[in-house]
Computed example of a mutant assay.
Amino acid sequence: MPAIHEVATLTTKGQLTLPKSIRQALGVDAGGKVAFDLRDGEIVVTRVGAEHHDPAIGSFLSLLARDIEAGRHIHALPEDLARAMLAHAGRAVDLGEDIDGDVDL
């Protein structure tokens, strides 16, 4: 994500208006929730409750999940990867976990 620098003014009630560029970068609209974390004197603002930041990626992953759940074969992937995806459909996956073996990109 590109660096964005914006300034907001705190009201007498302690309220801020998130600048439009920040709202767009976070993908939040009216009624959306954001979290504030204080880290070493800096405030980090993140969107709350969103699994995917990009709606196109979220839609693609939903489509892929439906195909996997339906048992459709994924021909563009290596067979061992497709089997692993099918074996883990509907289960939580730790993306920070170490990968066993070689990986071709």
Rank of each mutant, 00 (worst) to 15 (best):
V34E: 00
R72H: 12
L61P: 00
E42F: 10
M85Q: 04
G58Y: 02
S62Q: 09
L63E: 14
R66F: 00
L64D: 03
G71L: 04
G96R: 07
D37T: 11
G49T: 03
R91N: 15
G58M: 00
T46A: 04
L61Q: 06
H88T: 14
K33L: 10
R72K: 15
R91S: 14
D54V: 04
A92T: 10
D37K: 08
L63S: 13
V48K: 08
F60V: 07
R72P: 01
R47W: 01
G90C: 12
L63G: 12
I43V: 15
I99S: 05
G71W: 02
I99Y: 05
L86C: 04
L95T: 07
F36A: 03
V93C: 06
D40Y: 05
L81I: 13
R91Q: 15
E69A: 14
A89G: 02
D67R: 02
D54W: 05
D104N: 14
D94Y: 09
A82D: 01
L63C: 12
A70K: 08
A35H: 04
A82L: 04
D104R: 10
R83Y: 09
V48I: 07
L38E: 08
E51R: 03
A56C: 06
T46H: 02
V44E: 07
G49R: 08
K33Y: 10
G96W: 01
F60S: 10
E42G: 01
I99E: 03
P78A: 14
S59V: 06
L63I: 10
V103L: 14
D80P: 03
S59C: 07
R83T: 13
P78T: 11
D104E: 09
H73S: 10
I74R: 01
R47K: 11
A76W: 12
A35W: 02
V93M: 13
D100Y: 15
F36K: 02
A70E: 10
A92Y: 06
L63Y: 12
P55G: 08
A50R: 01
I43K: 05
R83L: 14
R39I: 09
A65N: 12
L86R: 05
G101H: 06
H75F: 12
I74P: 00
G101C: 13
A65P: 03
R83C: 09
F36C: 01
S59F: 05
A84S: 13
E51P: 00
E79W: 11
P78Q: 15
F60N: 08
G41A: 07
E51T: 06
A89Q: 04
L64K: 02
A87E: 08
D80I: 11
D80F: 11
I99V: 09
A89P: 01
P78E: 13
I99M: 10
D80N: 13
A70W: 04
G101Y: 15
G49N: 07
D98P: 05
L86T: 01
S62V: 07
D102E: 15
A56D: 14
A70Q: 11
A65C: 11
M85E: 00
A50C: 04
H88N: 15
A87Y: 05
D40K: 09
T46R: 07
